[in-house]
Design a protein around this nucleic acid. Structure first.
Lengths: 167, 167
DNA sequence: ATTAATTTTCAATATTTTTTGAAAGTTTGA
DNA sequence: TCAAACTTTCAAAAAATATTGAAAATTAAT
């Protein structure tokens, strides 16, 4: 496998993985491209490389910036904007965990809490609803608390912790 | 919030969360319905409750069974098939982790390994590709190993471990 | 072996999501 | 202030994904 093949393989694999996890292909691929690029890239560069439109590029770059994993960069004397990805793998993981928790997990935890707190009327179905949503609530809450600890830890905490668990 | 409201809220929230994480709405909602149902449900019951077609119900039940989180059950003297969900929250988490690892994460780890192993030609871009994909490979591999430990642990391991981390 | 009950399949349809591209907006420099 | 360089927005189009429903297949009882 040469450089070009490897690059394409990485970008398309990252795009496919994103899709599987609810992240659109263009967004995942732009991220992949910036992740392996030693230089900041302009919108033109990205459009060219991934064969996508200007509008698509612009919107997905904005989303990546909203997620806190891509940044704008200016070159002196140049009008054009350039983009770079967060390069540290731990920081990337933390940022993604943080955002998914905030946007997706916490709202669900809130619903689970509310649903599991309805008044018990002693019917089997109500009992089951309460019991099962409470169990989900507890698991989700514990897992989310852990994620948040993770997000606020020192740089190398993730790997150290995972390794400790794995023994 | 009464029982009906709570039930609907739970089912639609679970469906929406699924969608966000790449699982289709019907599949997530069928799972939610079975999760809180104290009795096994027939295909008719599910179609009726969620207002979805027979074909849709059949296909998504099959997928849930492929994921190992829903099972067929027969009532004596009845021709019809009934379905029940895995009820244990830990087992649910383990099963989902196990399947997502097998189907989605491991193939990506393989690609990362291959891509990060291309020959270094000492150009900046090749060096960056190798460095960054290697970093992802290491993180993904560690996390996946942890997931697999998890999957094969005793029943209550997840919560105990998470709590230990959280301190 | 036939029929009735039930489930599965899959081409057609509907829905949702993503992408495009051109117009509108913004910024910078002359 | 004007205009060139560049970016953003958003309605329309395209693509991807999910859903339907009826025909085919399966199963079980008579």
């Amino acid at each position: 496998m040469n450089y070009e093949e490897a690059k394409e393989k990485f970008i398309s694999t990252w795009g496919a993985l994103g899709t599987l996890w609810g992240i659109n292909k263009a967004m995942a691929q732009i991220h992949a491209l910036l992740w392996i690029s030693p230089e900041p890239l302009s919108m033109e560069d990205i459009m060219e490389e991934l064969q996508i439109s200007r509008g698509n590029t612009s919107m997905n770059l904005r989303q990546l910036m909203d997620w806190g994993i891509v940044f704008k960069e200016n070159k002196m004397g140049e009008r054009k904007e350039y983009f770079v990805s967060e390069k540290d793998v731990q920081e990337l993981a933390r940022q993604i965990a943080k955002e998914r928790s905030r946007r997706e997990i916490r709202p669900v935890i809130k619903v689970l809490k509310d649903v599991s707190s309805i008044e018990d009327d002693n019917t089997a179905k109500t009992k089951e609803l309460i019991k099962q949503t409470k169990a989900l609530h507890e698991l989700a809450d514990t897992a989310d608390t852990m994620m948040n600890k993770m997000v606020n830890q020192e740089h190398n905490w993730i790997t150290k912790t995972l390794l400790k668990i794995v023994k």
